[in-house]
Amino acid sequence: MKLKLPEGQFKAYLFDCDGTIADSMPLHYIAWKKALGEWGCDFDEDLFYAWGGLSVAKIISTLNEQRGLNMPVAEVEHRKESLYYDLLPQLTAVPEVLEHIEAQYGRIPFAVVSGSTRESVTASLAALHLLDRFETMVCAGDYKKGKPDPEIFLLAAERLGVAPQDCLVFEDAELGIQGATAAGMASVRVPLPHERAVALK
């Protein structure tokens, strides 16, 4: 299965990390289920994917509000992240995206635009031996408004010195696609794990 890129001569690529560069969403979901389960909080898989692009802290806070829970955000965030780090040896790259990273590396600059923490993104990219491919990373804590707000994408373009209309965004989550569009950037949607599995059959 190949990703069909939009027409145009792009001067920079902006990549979400989880589910886009790293095939990490199934591993993140395992970590989420265990961390939240310890507080008696269920987390449906469809909701997990629908909330792709939100920060860990935002997800915990929203679950607290919606379910009338009082989970300590920082503690649960730390627990979830540590559970994910334990699963890193199983991590693989998304082949359809890796192909474009390898084809354009050294020709145009790359940035990571992620709702995950810098520590989590760094750990994932290091595990995949891809950390040195990116000029800059914009992660949770670097911006005020998360996806679908365009701030994260505009900040990455500014750091790379490339106009928004000259950037192409790779994203697996609808919130990310919306944010890229709001930033005036073209985007390509990376299929979710189950969609890629179906395409391979």
Rank of each mutant, 00 (worst) to 15 (best):
Phe153Trp: 15
Cys17Gly: 02
Glu158Asp: 15
Asp18Gly: 00
Gly68Asp: 02
Leu14Pro: 00
Lys201Cys: 14
Leu47Met: 11
Pro26Tyr: 13
Arg196Ile: 05
Pro109Thr: 02
Pro72Cys: 04
Glu81Lys: 09
Asn64Asp: 00
Glu151Ile: 03
Met137Val: 06
Arg159Val: 12
Trp39Val: 01
Gly141Asn: 00
Lys201Phe: 14
Asp166Arg: 11
Ala182Ser: 15
Cys139His: 06
Arg118Cys: 14
Met1Asp: 12
Ser120Gly: 03
Ile59Thr: 15
Ile177His: 03
Lys34Pro: 02
Gly68Pro: 06
Lys58Tyr: 07
Asp44His: 11
Val190Leu: 00
Lys58Glu: 15
Val198Gln: 07
Glu151Met: 12
Gly184Met: 03
Leu130Met: 12
Tyr84Pro: 01
Gly53Trp: 01
Ala197Lys: 08
Phe43Gln: 08
Ala199His: 08
Tyr13Pro: 11
Gly184Thr: 03
Phe48Lys: 05
Gly115Leu: 05
Lys144His: 10
Glu77Ala: 14
Glu151His: 03
Asp46Pro: 04
Pro164Leu: 06
Ser61Gln: 15
Leu98Gly: 07
Ala180Tyr: 12
Tyr49Asp: 06
Phe48Met: 06
Glu135Ala: 15
Gly184Cys: 07
Tyr49Ser: 01
Pro191Trp: 00
Ile108Thr: 10
Glu45Thr: 04
Asp172Met: 11
Val73Glu: 06
Val97Phe: 07
Leu200Gly: 13
Gly176Asn: 02
Leu3Cys: 11
Gln104Asn: 14
Ser61Asn: 12
Glu158Val: 12
Phe48Asn: 06
Cys139Pro: 05
Asn64Lys: 08
Leu200His: 10
Asn64Leu: 08
Gly53Thr: 06
Val56Pro: 06
Thr62Lys: 14
Leu125Pro: 04
Ala156Trp: 10
Ala180Asp: 10
Val169His: 01
Lys201Met: 13
Trp51Ser: 10
Phe110Trp: 01
Glu81Phe: 08
